[in-house]
Amino acid sequence: MRQPSDKRPRRRFSDKDIKRFKVEHDDTLLNYLFTLFGDKSRTTVKSYLTHRQVAVNDMPVTQFDTVLHAGDELKINFKAGFSVFKHNRLRLVYEDEYILVIDKGYGLLSMSTDRIKTGTAYSILSDYVKSQNPENKLFIVHRLDRDTSGLMMFAKSKGIQEQMQHNWHNMVLERKYVAVVEGQMEQPEGMVRSYLAENAAFQVYSTDNPEEGQLAITRYKVLSSNKHFSLVELNLATGRKNQIRVHMHDLGHSIAGDRKYGAHGSPLGRVALHAYKLRFAHPVTRKEMNFETPIPPRFLSITASTGPSAVDGK
Results as ranks from 00 to 15, higher is better:
residue 98 Y to D: 14
residue 298 R to M: 11
residue 169 H to I: 04
residue 93 V to E: 11
residue 311 V to F: 13
residue 72 D to F: 02
residue 295 I to L: 01
residue 234 L to P: 06
residue 41 S to N: 12
residue 204 V to S: 12
residue 16 K to G: 01
residue 97 E to N: 08
residue 155 A to P: 08
residue 133 N to S: 14
residue 87 H to V: 02
residue 54 V to M: 03
residue 215 L to K: 12
residue 252 G to V: 10
residue 50 T to G: 10
residue 287 K to W: 00
residue 239 G to F: 05
residue 16 K to S: 15
residue 171 M to G: 01
residue 306 T to I: 02
residue 9 P to S: 06
residue 171 M to H: 03
residue 44 T to N: 10
residue 196 L to Y: 06
residue 293 T to Y: 00
residue 211 E to R: 13
residue 253 H to L: 10
residue 170 N to F: 11
residue 289 M to Y: 02
residue 99 I to L: 05
residue 164 M to Y: 11
residue 297 P to M: 01
residue 38 G to F: 02
residue 47 S to G: 09
residue 157 S to E: 07
residue 297 P to N: 04
residue 101 V to N: 06
residue 110 S to K: 00
residue 16 K to T: 13
residue 7 K to H: 11
residue 142 H to G: 06
residue 259 R to C: 10
residue 152 M to N: 02
residue 96 D to N: 12
residue 155 A to G: 07
residue 196 L to P: 01
residue 123 S to T: 15
residue 149 S to R: 04
residue 43 T to S: 14
residue 89 R to F: 00
residue 287 K to L: 07
residue 99 I to Y: 05
residue 254 S to C: 14
residue 129 V to S: 07
residue 24 E to I: 12
residue 314 K to F: 14
residue 304 A to Y: 06
residue 231 L to A: 06
residue 295 I to W: 06
residue 292 E to L: 05
residue 276 Y to I: 04
residue 297 P to W: 00
residue 257 G to H: 05
residue 88 N to H: 09
residue 302 I to K: 03
residue 58 D to A: 13
residue 16 K to L: 10
residue 50 T to A: 14
residue 246 V to F: 08
residue 157 S to F: 10
residue 85 F to T: 08
residue 308 P to R: 13
residue 136 N to L: 07
residue 162 E to G: 07
residue 10 R to L: 09
residue 265 G to W: 13
residue 207 T to G: 06
residue 91 R to P: 00
residue 148 T to Q: 07
residue 256 A to Y: 01
residue 98 Y to W: 12
residue 286 R to E: 14
residue 190 G to C: 12
residue 203 Q to P: 01
residue 155 A to I: 09
residue 169 H to G: 04
residue 258 D to T: 12
residue 103 D to K: 00
residue 186 E to Y: 01
residue 111 M to I: 15
residue 310 A to M: 03
residue 201 A to W: 10
residue 18 I to R: 03
residue 282 H to Y: 10
residue 109 L to A: 07
residue 275 A to R: 06
residue 110 S to E: 00
residue 158 K to D: 14
residue 281 A to N: 12
residue 140 I to Y: 00
residue 88 N to A: 02
residue 232 V to C: 04
residue 89 R to W: 00
residue 239 G to L: 07
residue 78 F to W: 15
residue 157 S to Q: 02
residue 303 T to R: 01
residue 107 G to H: 11
residue 74 L to T: 08
residue 164 M to V: 08
residue 259 R to K: 15
residue 209 N to V: 03
residue 244 I to G: 03
residue 294 P to A: 12
residue 265 G to H: 15
residue 297 P to D: 13
residue 149 S to E: 07
residue 41 S to R: 11
residue 205 Y to Q: 05
residue 171 M to A: 04
residue 210 P to Q: 10
residue 110 S to D: 01
residue 19 K to M: 12
residue 67 V to P: 00
residue 209 N to L: 04
residue 34 F to H: 08
residue 167 N to F: 10
residue 83 S to H: 13
residue 111 M to L: 12
residue 90 L to W: 01
residue 215 L to G: 04
residue 72 D to E: 05
residue 120 T to E: 08
residue 212 E to I: 07
residue 229 F to Q: 09
residue 38 G to Q: 11
residue 301 S to R: 09
residue 19 K to Q: 15
residue 122 Y to S: 04
residue 293 T to P: 00
